[in-house]
Computed example of a mutant assay.
Amino acid sequence: MALFGLLFGLASSSIVIVLFGFLYTLVSNVFSNGFHIFQAEIFPTPVRATAAGWGYSLSRLMSGVMPFVLLPILHADGVVAMFSAVAAAMVLIMIDIGVFAPRTTGIALETVNDVAI
């Protein structure tokens, strides 16, 4: 997402803009689906629906706040700076998941939280 977003921001021809816009959206949708599935896996069964709902709600709230953060960056510093901010956020999310999230591959859903402790 970071790469396609930066390339989208740097593009100058219509074909390249459409290509990288499409690729960014495609990767973003795959990431979003995977991320929300992962969120549901990491919560204990008794609170899974509520916790996943809160997580999804907070992600939607942040989506509503992002124009107020990103548009001033776009206006003041340009497209590359705005997409660099988005790319930096994506890198932080990858590091956060890679370092702090419990491993869920090959583990029964009911035991994910036992393994994480």
Rank of each mutant, 00 (worst) to 15 (best):
S32D: 09
S59H: 06
F43V: 01
A52T: 15
G98F: 06
G78L: 08
F83H: 00
G53M: 12
R103D: 13
R60W: 11
S12V: 07
F20E: 01
V18C: 05
H36T: 07
I95S: 05
A49F: 13
P102W: 06
T104I: 10
T45L: 14
F22A: 06
I37S: 15
A85K: 04
V18M: 12
N33M: 15
V18N: 09
N33T: 13
I37C: 14
M66D: 15
R60A: 15
I93Q: 05
V86M: 03
F4R: 01
L23I: 08
A2E: 06
D77A: 15
V99F: 04
E41D: 10
P44L: 12
I15A: 08
S28P: 03
V65Y: 01
N29Y: 13
A2D: 03
W54R: 09
S12L: 05
M90E: 07
V65N: 02
P102K: 06
I15R: 00
A81H: 03
T111G: 04
F83S: 03
A101T: 13
A87E: 05
G98W: 07
I97F: 13
G34Q: 08
F20M: 11
S14N: 09
I37Y: 15
S14T: 09
S84W: 04
V65T: 06
A85T: 02
T111E: 09
A108H: 11
M82A: 05
F83V: 00
D114G: 12
N33Y: 08
I37W: 08
T45R: 14
T111V: 09
G64C: 10
G53S: 14
L3K: 00
M94E: 10
N113Q: 13
V112D: 02
V79L: 12
T45C: 07
G21I: 02
A81T: 02
D96K: 02
T104F: 05
V47K: 06
I42P: 01
I95T: 10
A2C: 03
I93A: 11
Y24R: 03
V69T: 04
T105Q: 15
F8R: 01
E41F: 08
I107Y: 02
A51K: 07
A116R: 07
I37L: 14
M90K: 02
L6K: 04
I17H: 01
F20C: 00
M82P: 00
L92F: 01
G55C: 11
Y24K: 01
N33Q: 13
I42M: 13
P44N: 12
T50C: 12
S57L: 15
S63K: 09
L3N: 00
V99A: 10
P46E: 11
L23F: 11
G98S: 07
L23P: 00
V65R: 05
I95E: 03
A81I: 04
Y56H: 08
A101K: 14
A51D: 14
L70S: 04
S57E: 10
D77C: 11
N29P: 03
A85W: 01
S14M: 08
M82N: 02
I97V: 15
F22Q: 01
V86D: 02
A87K: 02
V69H: 04
P72R: 05
S84Q: 01
S84H: 00
W54D: 10
S13K: 07
L23V: 07
N113W: 08
M94T: 10
I15T: 11
G5C: 01
D114K: 08
S14H: 05
M66V: 14
L92A: 07
D114T: 13
S59N: 11
V99R: 07
R103M: 08
S12C: 09
W54K: 13
F20V: 04
I37Q: 14
V47C: 07
